[in-house]
Structures are given as structure tokens and as C-alpha cells.
Simulated assay, not measured.
Amino acid sequence: MFIPERIWPGIADGTRQKALVSRDEDPGAWRAAVYSDIPLTTQWDDGQHRGDGLGTQPTSSNSMPRMVFAMLADLGVRDGDRVLEIGTGTGWNAGLLAHRLGDANVVSVEYDPDIARTARENLRRARLSPLVVVGDGRLGHAGGAPYTRTIATCSVGEVPYSWIRRTADGGMVVAPWGTTYGGEAIARLTVVGGGVASGTFTRPSAFMRLRQQRTHRPPFEAYLRGKPWPADGERGTTSLSPAETGSWLAQFVIGLRVPAAFWRAERYEGGAYTLWLYGADTASWASADHVPGDTEFEVVQCGPRRLWDEVERAYGWWERHDRPGFERFGLTVSEAGQRVWLDDPGDSWAV
């Protein structure tokens, strides 16, 4: 009832999409994809993409069922709860909530008017009618506040404070959260009163970013400033393999400790690649060359920040704390901003 005629199936453990599947052209393949535990991309490039191929950026989807149900379990709704959802998408998640709690207790905010209209049609077909509002998800929806539960189906790097403000004391906010560097996990925050929400991460995730918080990364040319590589970089070596820093959890941890930085990989034959690190202000960059089987790796660093050194320190910090998983990290959000912590909310740092 909720999946459109044309979809681009994803994969269960990543963010890539496969070729278009059309219900008209191959109903068997379409149904198999719909009833698989995978995400389904339903829109590319904010609706500007045309044709059957992959677009540049996926911008709406029906999430992987296992993740949908896991997040609903994190949300822990009870009879009488009133839920605010950020990101309607196909309407399926809003429909599940409305089926559980009743239409009058679910409000869903969707930024894209076309997506919102289609979601309403899908919900009507399922004989459900939660309130679907077209608006800026960062602001929530004041009309139904306070909510006892707030859930986002898009990721954020900064939890909008309006979500905390519009959630009742003792209520829950569940949202995918990730850093600029990479990695992402589900934050499960309890509003503890005084305009503060705090809690731990529950599981890794990979969601499309809230549109107003998308990262716009400078081009490669902005860093070398017209000079041939290695430009003004200083050469060195490291015993830390760049491959060790590439897991979803390692990226998440590095992002918590190395602010305003991101990476990309330039790959070569035989499994070798260069890991490029960039400061968001374009003033600093670094490269680390990974060659399979090597124990020493060439590093070049340039600018006021020594980005590879920062990554090494973050990785070393993680190792000294016995490589904690997502569930040992936490997030506290207040009007003053957001802070992350490991095990102890009293020992936090700004992100």
C-alpha cells in the first residue's frame, strides 16, 4: 500500500542502491524487493531526477523494516502516547504508529509537498489518517505539543532544540545522529526536565540527512590551491593502517573526537588507496596511503591542523578505553547545545 511503482532497492548493510525495479515491468522482482529486509529509495535529487538510472543523491526512501521496528522498539510507545514524527516519506512508519495509537495521536512533518501528498494517499488507502503536515522538520509542529514521543526518520548532526522543547518531561526523542566525519547511530534521549534531554545510542544506522542539515563539502581543488601534490604538505609515516579507521564504528568515534573534518578515499588497483582527510574550513588536509600487507604507511599533512595526528589520537583514545561500542556513548542536548560522553554524562565534551 505504501511503496511506489518505481523503486531502487538498497542493501541491508550499506548505503548503495541497485538498479531500478518497476512494478509494471517486473511485478515479481518488485514484490520481492518490497518484502525484503532492505531500504528502498523512492526519490532522487529532491524530485529533480528523471529516467531509470541512479540519481546523484537519494532524497527519500522507505526504510529497512528491521531498522523501522528497532527504532519503534526504542521509542517504546504506550497507550495514550502522542507522537511527533519528523520525515513522513512513504507514510508507512506514520501508519504503523497510527494503527498502534490511533490517528489523533500521531503527527508527521514532511518537508517535500509531493512526498507528503503521496503519503496521505497511501495512508487513506490503508484507512488511516494521522495528521501529515508540510513544513520544516527542524521546527516540529507546535499545534500538537507537548508530545510524549518524538521520532525522526532522517539523520541529524545537531538535534534541533525545538524537538526537546515540544516533548513533555519524561518523554522520549529517538533520532539517527552522526558527525561530519562519518558513522551514525540511533540516539535515544529522555527529556529529563529543565529543557534537557539525555541518553545513550542504541544501534548503528544509515539514514538520509535532514535536508536543512546536509553537508556541502568543498571541492578537492580548494585544498591544494592550484599547487601540485604534495603542495606544502609535510611527509611522514604512521604504523596505524588507514583501513583500521574505516569501519562505521571507528568513523563514529573519530568524528566525536575530531570536529569539522571529513574524508574520502581514492582507490587504485590491488586494494591500495589514499585516505584523504579535509578540514571543513579548507585550511588543512592530510593523506594516508594504504598498501595491503604494509606495516608502515606514508602520510602527508598540510595546514594549521595536523588532521592525521588528530585521527591517530582519537583512535588511540578509543583503544585505551577498550574500543567501546555505540551503546556506551551518549548524547545530552540542551538550549546551550549538545555534548557527547562515554559511560558518564558528567564527563562530556562539546561536538
Rank of each mutant, 00 (worst) to 15 (best):
G137E: 06
R235L: 11
S287L: 13
A185Q: 02
P292T: 10
Q43V: 01
S239L: 11
G91F: 01
A197K: 09
T150G: 00
P176G: 03
I254A: 07
A12P: 09
Q251M: 14
A104M: 10
R78T: 08
A152N: 10
S63Y: 11
G47M: 03
G10H: 02
R188M: 00
S108R: 00
R120D: 00
L131G: 01
Y315G: 07
G330V: 03
G346C: 11
D136Y: 07
G10I: 04
M71I: 09
G76D: 14
A280W: 14
E234V: 15
I164H: 02
P160K: 05
G233L: 04
P4Q: 13
E25S: 12
R66P: 13
D52Y: 11
R323S: 10
P146Q: 06
W8Y: 06
V109N: 00
E327P: 05
A12S: 13
V83Y: 00
R225Q: 14
S198M: 14
R117I: 05
L123M: 09
P4L: 05
F326N: 02
V333M: 03
A152H: 09
S348M: 06
G246Y: 07
T215D: 10
T150R: 02
E25C: 09
P304H: 08
S334L: 07
E234T: 14
Q48W: 04
S63L: 13
A286C: 12
G80V: 04
G337Q: 11
G293M: 15
R125S: 13
G255N: 06
S284M: 03
P345K: 09
W317H: 14
F252G: 00
E158V: 14
A206I: 01
A119M: 03
E319I: 11
P160H: 03
I11P: 00
L256W: 04
A243K: 15
S239V: 13
H321Y: 13
R320D: 15
G47W: 06
T180H: 10
A119W: 01
R50H: 08
A261D: 02
A104L: 12
E234K: 09
Q301Y: 05
P259K: 15
G182V: 14
G199H: 09
M172E: 08
T190A: 12
Y181A: 03
L75V: 03
V77A: 08
D13I: 04
T41L: 05
N62G: 11
T41F: 02
Y111G: 01
I186V: 15
G270K: 07
L249G: 07
R209P: 00
F252T: 05
T153K: 06
L307N: 07
